[in-house]
Amino acid sequence: MEIGTTGETAGPVWVGLPGGLLTLRRLLLVLWTAALTVATGVLLGVLVGPAWAAFGGLWLAVLAWGWVMLGRNWRSWRYAERADDLLISRGVLWREQTVVPYGRMQLVEVTSGPLERRFGLASVQLHTAAAATDAKIPGLVPQEAERLRDRLSELGEARSAGL
């Protein structure tokens, strides 16, 4: 923890994820629910009868619920760099906070799949000796992901227990 100007300890400085990840996830939600709505409506309309085709609209309720849940999940993701470790916090109902000591990191990767690249996003994957403490920060701007990778690698080497 850092010491504030008045002498009391201040908490870590949390950084949230950029909005591109939320946009990507919501776009995928819209595409999948639209496809499922049409497929369900057509199949039910042809196989059972035209009145049953309206049940394809149930996917629209899934869309509305998913839209809200994706926003809540996106807002829950954050990370903080401290002097000796990296904190990653996520989760809405079940809050999960991962603490990765810099000296325990063995590998820091920056990955970006085709959709992530299209939206200008990258993920930072942290690997430690214990698989249970591996951590990932998704949806970062590539420059921030590379900066974070370089900083974590540098701090890991300075602690000389990993990397």
Rank of each mutant, 00 (worst) to 15 (best):
A64S: 01
P142I: 03
P18M: 08
H127D: 06
E146I: 01
V15C: 14
G16M: 02
G41D: 01
L87K: 02
L36Y: 11
L140I: 00
G49H: 00
R159N: 12
V92A: 12
I88A: 09
W67E: 05
L121A: 03
L44R: 03
A35K: 10
P101N: 03
G7C: 04
G49M: 00
L47T: 10
P101E: 01
A64L: 10
E8D: 04
A39L: 15
R90H: 09
T111R: 15
A129L: 13
L148Q: 08
L58G: 13
W67K: 10
A80S: 04
L17M: 10
S112N: 01
D150E: 15
W67Y: 08
R75W: 07
Q97P: 02
R149H: 04
E2H: 10
Y79M: 06
E2K: 15
P114Q: 11
R104I: 08
G120P: 01
R118F: 13
L148I: 12
A51Q: 06
L22V: 07
L29Y: 05
W59H: 12
R149N: 00
P101Q: 03
Q125Y: 12
H127P: 12
A161L: 15
W14F: 08
G4R: 09
T128D: 02
R147W: 14
G66F: 11
V46N: 13
R149A: 00
Y79V: 11
G4Q: 06
D134R: 09
L58P: 02
G156C: 04
S112T: 00
L36I: 07
A161S: 13
L17I: 09
L47A: 11
L70A: 11
R149S: 02
E2M: 13
G103N: 14
L31D: 00
G7F: 07
V42T: 09
Q97Y: 04
W14Y: 12
G103S: 10
R149E: 00
S89C: 07
I3P: 06
Y102G: 03
R90G: 06
I3A: 03
R147V: 04
R147S: 03
Q97R: 12
G57V: 02
E157P: 02
R26I: 05
D150G: 05
A35Y: 03
V15G: 02
H127F: 15
V42A: 10
H127E: 11
P138G: 08
L86R: 01
V13G: 04
A158L: 10
W67I: 10
R82T: 14
R90N: 07
D150I: 12
L152F: 01
D134T: 05
S76Q: 02
Q97N: 07
L126V: 11
A161T: 14
V99N: 14
L28F: 08
L140A: 00
R118G: 06
S112Y: 00
Y79T: 02
G139F: 05
W32D: 06
L87M: 05
R151T: 07
A61Y: 08
V110R: 03
R117G: 00
G4M: 01
K136C: 10
W14G: 04
A35C: 08
L93M: 15
A145D: 00
T128W: 05
Y102L: 04
V38M: 13
E109C: 06
N73L: 06
G56Y: 09
H127V: 10
W14P: 05
V92E: 05
L126Q: 09
D84W: 11
G20Q: 10
I137E: 09
L17H: 13
G11W: 07
W74D: 08
E8V: 04
A53Y: 01
E144L: 13
G113Q: 08
W14Q: 06
W94K: 14
T9A: 15
L155R: 12
